[in-house]
């Protein structure tokens, strides 16, 4: 019987060369256009009214 091509043989994974070269594309590596980032700013006051929020610097970032 002819030797099996894969069964019992060591097989090199096809996806490894790019992962080993740092060319994988993990979610954190993907930059889509117009992506917005957010950060939570918590109030230092337990009970207060928000009168206004300055968003100029964030919007222009």
């Amino acid at each position: 019987m002819a030797q099996a091509k894969y069964i019992g043989q060591k097989v090199l994974r096809k996806e490894d060369p790019r992962l080993l070269a740092g060319k994988g594309a993990y979610v954190d590596d993907v930059h889509l256009p117009h992506t917005a980032h957010m950060a939570l700013l918590r109030s230092p006051h337990a009970h207060a009214r928000i009168l206004s929020i300055e968003t100029g610097a964030a919007a222009s970032a």
């Binding site: 060591k10 090199l12 994974r13 490894d16 060369p17 992962l19 080993l20 740092g22 994988g24 993990y26």
Partner: peptide, 14 residues
């Protein structure tokens, strides 16, 4: 690493 299957998802590999 390639020959000995030293990676699966590859995230820690670099």
């Amino acid at each position: 690493f390639w020959e000995e299957h030293g990676l699966q998802c590859g995230f820690c590999t670099p």
